[in-house]
Amino acid sequence: MTQQHGFYIDTEKCTGCKTCELACKDYKDLGTEINFRRIYEYTGGDWHQDATGCWIPDVFAYYVSMACNHCNNPACTTVCPTGAMHKRDDGFVLVAEDICIGCRHCESACPYGAPQYNAEKRNMTKCDGCYERVGEGKQPICVESCPLRAIDFGPMDELTEKYGYQRDIAPLPPSHMTQPNLIIRLNPNAKSTGSRAGTLANPQEV
């Protein structure tokens, strides 16, 4: 398998139930502080007056499930002083935990919050795309666990053919920066990248 793989995230279907996050936690045996997959709740709302003079609220909330996007231009590997954070020939971006010195520079650079410092191991950890499962022809645990089928995973050309190539949505960064292997289905309420219309409702959780 040498094809670049990526994730498809359907923000229309996702209910923010966090099953994917917990399935990953369980499979990867992560403590409370570390979440390889995180669900960002983007919420906001305003009032507007309709034709009859009635004030109507338009509250919105949608969820973006994010792990690592195994980017084509990864900020994490660019800054890593040891090369522990590396992109493999098959496209997965992994941390060689025995080489990492725990400088946390990759964490400073990644605009998706993917690298997570493990204080016990004293080195960086991150979503590895469940590459071992993928190598056996299986899907990542997070993908299989989703009760809404809101996450898909596969070779990028197949995903693009199926779902298009939308990659930008608030509160994610502009995709041209790291070129994530990610496809988004927009929620009807989706705001564009950089929008200040909403706020992150669960900052403590991510």
Binding site: I99, I101, G102, R104, K121
Partner: peptide, 10 residues
């Protein structure tokens, strides 16, 4: 650094 002893890896 989490692992100063691996410092030479830089």
């Amino acid at each position: 650094l989490g692992h100063p002893l691996r410092g030479a890896n830089v």
